[in-house]
Design a binder for these strands. Structure first.
Lengths: 193, 193
DNA sequence: TAAGTTTTGCAATGATCAGTGCAAAAATTG
DNA sequence: CAATTTTTGCACTGATCATTGCAAAACTTA
């Protein structure tokens, strides 16, 4: 061991994540990162390797930090439909409360870079898989509880919920509107009964 | 009048649109445009003013050139539900056939730039409005024809369809998959009956 | 053909880009 | 304190960025 880093690697990564999230990959310069994170560029390169590697690390951090819907709560105690409703209500509320209209870092990154970076493309695919899988478990749970008709295809319902989720994330950027969210949630929940 | 331009202004605009569409705004340089369009940068600036102005013109061209869903066909002759089904089937087929995974130029631009350009933000809002409005008319038509229950809120249904459409456009970038599209369309059409 | 007007090619602008070489600074360990 | 190891600040790289000044070229109109 020798001289330790003067910064918290994890905090810097989170800071980089927020900067990339806000401005996108191309529009964020090393100079921006240096300034906003208060860390010299030499240290950034020392620690993360390159701008692209730092971005991927930030994207990984995002996908772990559970910014997405929280599927866990209420899997047992509450009703599945109520949980799904709550997920979308929370998403809508969070989106409307966000003045900066950041949207979803994963969606933003996929739209900007999926065509140019295989790494980003892989991240986005696994992100979709996790999203569908989370909804799928909730729906199966609802079917077992008798809330959701057993003859409905749980995968199709889950994919539809995931697609609705993605639509919300785009609306966050294009035209976030309370009534729209409310109405779309209402129609979406109807598909489960 | 004097010396005429050596290029077709409209063709160049369409070419610029495709380049911005493929690479995004930030990642497309004037050099790229010069090379791919075969037009000197001086002529581009002479004609369009700036990179940002050229981009906005390209975005305007896109929103006029009807890349979105075609609502017209079958408003009278066919059933409304069949028309809606066809819109999404075509969208899915086109998306799956597109090797470059371009997605939607308007969605891509909104996600990349809505937070930084008020012009792009306005474009995207009006684009959403047109999308919802198109679906709304189809749904009202379906209600008049008796295909769609009269007690359903046509605006909510239209907003849900528009949201589904946006989701598809993101899936095109993240994880385009035939079965997913088929299943989501199936659930979505169910909301209309 | 001559005058008038616009486009075009070329070269250059200063700014900013991502990334790096190097030596001083700062910490740990003995 | 001394030896060792790593971080950090600084200046700098060549490349690329969007944009422009200028003059020659090319076209229309008379």
């Amino acid at each position: 061991m020798a001289r330790p880093k003067a910064f918290d690697e994890d905090k810097v990564l989170i800071g980089a994540m927020h900067l990339f999230w806000e401005k996108g990959y191309e529009a964020t310069s090393i100079q921006d990162l240096e300034t906003h994170l208060g860390v010299g560029r030499r240290s950034l390169y020392n620690t993360f390797g390159s701008k692209h590697a730092l971005f991927l690390a930030a994207l990984g951090k995002y996908s772990q930090s559970g910014d997405g819907p929280s599927f866990e709560k209420g899997c047992e105690s509450h009703s599945a439909i109520d949980t799904i409703q709550a997920i979308f209500d929370n998403l809508a509320a969070d989106t409307l409360a966000d003045e900066n209209r950041l949207g979803c870092f994963m969606v933003n990154s996929a739209v900007e870079l999926a065509g140019q970076s295989e790494d980003v493309s892989k991240f986005s695919r696994s992100s979709i898989r996790a999203l569908v899988s989370g909804f799928y478990k909730l729906i199966r749970d609802g079917q077992i509880k008798g809330e959701i008709p057993i003859d409905k295809d749980p995968l199709a319902l889950a994919q539809h919920l995931a697609n609705t989720y993605l639509g919300f994330r785009v609306l966050a950027k294009m035209s976030p509107d309370k009534d729209t969210f409310t109405n779309v949630i209402s129609v979406t929940i109807q598909t489960l009964t």
